[in-house]
Design a protein around this nucleic acid. Structure first.
Lengths: 110, 110
DNA sequence: TTTTTTTATCGTAATATTGCAATATTAAAC
DNA sequence: GTTTAATATTGCAATATTACGATAAAAAAA
C-alpha cells in the first residue's frame, strides 16, 4: 500500500484534502505569501525568494498549479503566476463553516 | 534528501503548513467532519464511519492530534476526541487574510 | 546566430506517508 | 480473575514526497 484511497471518500472531502495538501509544505506557503506580496503577475524572482534550489521551487510551483491554488504560465523568460482566488475562497468557506458549527454546538467538553 | 527543510522558513509558514498537511488527506477531512457532526465528545464509532482499517484510522487520529487539529483522549474504552477550535480559527484567519488582500489588489491579470 | 537568462524536465537518492495484519494495551463488564 | 470491547502500537510492504544536479527548452539580449 502507500497510495491514498481517494475512492472511499466524498468528492468534497477529496477536494478539500487536495487543496490542503498543496499548502502542506512551508515552501508552498512561502510561495503563496510571495505572490500575494508582489501584487503583480510578472514576478520573475520567486526562485530567489525561496531558499531551495531552482528545480525544487519549480516542482513546488507545479504542485500548487496542479492543485488549482495558483494559475498562470511563463511569459517569455519570466514567470507569470498568481493566486487562484476561487481555491482560497473555497478553503476559507470550509474553515468558516466549521467554526460556525463549533460556535453553535451544545457540548464543548474537551 | 526527502525531508522537508522546515528550518529555512518562518515559524508561521511552518505552522500553517503543518496544519494544512494534517488536513491533506481525505480520511482526516472525513474524521473532522464526523467529529463536527456528532456534536459530542464521547463518540466511539469513528472507526466504523471511516472506510479504512482500525489501525489506519488510529494513525490518522494521531496525526490530527499531533498537528493540534483535534484534542482529547480515550475515556475508558471509548474515544473522546474533539476539534480544536483554535487550530481551525487559525486556518480560517489565514485564508481570510489572503482573500482580503486579493480583493484590495490593483492587478488581476491571470 | 550566439550568448544569456529563466524556467522546466529528467533522473535519482533520501525520506515520509499510507495502509493493514498481528499484537498489545486498557478498562469496563461479567 | 476472565472475558469482552475499544483503541493503540509494532512491523512491514507499497507508494509518494522532497530535494537537487544535470540537462533541456525557449525566448530575450547581444
Amino acid at each position: 500500500m502507500g497510495a491514498t484511497k481517494t475512492d472511499h471518500f466524498t468528492e468534497k472531502q477529496n477536494s478539500i484534502a487536495l487543496l490542503a495538501k498543496a499548502l502542506g509544505h512551508p515552501a508552498r506557503v512561502a510561495i503563496v505569501a510571495y505572490l500575494l506580496k508582489v501584487d503583480d503577475c510578472i514576478c520573475g524572482d520567486i526562485v530567489n525568494e525561496i531558499p531551495l534550489a531552482q528545480p525544487t521551487v519549480s516542482q513546488h510551483l507545479k504542485e500548487l498549479k496542479t492543485a488549482g491554488l495558483i494559475k498562470g504560465n511563463i511569459e517569455g523568460n519570466a514567470i507569470c503566476y498568481c493566486i487562484n482566488e476561487k481555491a482560497i475562497l473555497k478553503l476559507e468557506n470550509y474553515f468558516a463553516s466549521i467554526t460556525a458549527k463549533l460556535r453553535s454546538r451544545k457540548n464543548n467538553c474537551c
